[in-house]
Design a protein around this nucleic acid. Structure first.
Lengths: 123, 123
DNA sequence: TGGATACGCAACCATATGGTTGCATATTGT
DNA sequence: ACAATATGCAACCATATGGTTGCGTATCCA
């Protein structure tokens, strides 16, 4: 990590890996999804910087950041008088893998259906 | 702006592909995520069948199904006195691709950071 | 036909959620 | 020290959300 603002690993109170709904819920709010997106391609940003691009107040942004933190998607740390928030891509990976898994289940279900049709279907 | 001269696009009640937050919000409710998961590996199910596995009332399940429909994740149809709901995997694919995209942005940001460190960093 | 099954609709309720404003605190820089 | 900046905290508010119950309707089947 190049950013000295990021504190040491603080793994508390964040969503467990086996809680995909929490991550999806966090991403399900347009303002929050935007924050995640911005952190994704701009790197760690302060609350003030994040508020610049948003249409809501600083406090609203702060609340969203806390929600994202609860979901394990972002992590914050202080740098002087600023609080810097950074993306934490692990949970995004979790969400991806979850979608992959149920998509695969869907494909398997389709295959089972095909097998059933071939077996029992119209002669 | 929609030019009135252009052929009108089919207006859908369901979420547009470019509305990932809506899909994530739909998946962000544990009960709904469970419904999606069940439809994924069990195939189309009636409301009664879906209610069997749920801890909430049939009406709650119905509401969730409507929410999922709004997000474009499921589609319902009648079969006699039953209403059958089926998964609609396209939106899941959209969500997957969205996560892929921002994950990739994150990777590119990391690479930019590395390039910056190599260029300007401690000699 | 009549009962059982499957569902839709509407009203209602408690809480969660997203947003705001006001004010206090800490940090920076002159 | 002082003003400006960046943030935290708490109260407050309107609406959305998830859940329930009650009741009416359609369909299946004996």
């Amino acid at each position: 990590m190049a950013d000295p603002a990021l504190p040491r690993r603080r793994r508390r109170r964040t969503a467990a890996a086996g809680d995909p709904a929490r991550v999806f819920a966090a991403l399900g709010e347009p303002a929050r999804l935007r924050i995640v997106s911005r952190l994704c391609d701009a790197g760690p940003l302060s609350i003030a910087r994040l508020t610049e691009g948003a249409r809501v107040s600083r406090q609203a942004v702060t609340k969203h950041l806390h929600a994202l933190e609860q979901a394990g998607l972002v992590q914050g740390g202080r740098a002087g008088r600023e609080q810097i928030w950074a993306l934490r891509p692990e949970r995004l990976g979790d969400a991806q893998r979850y979608l992959d898994r149920i998509s695969q289940q869907w494909d398997e279900a389709l295959q089972r259906l095909q097998a059933f049709v071939e077996d029992d279907g119209p002669a």
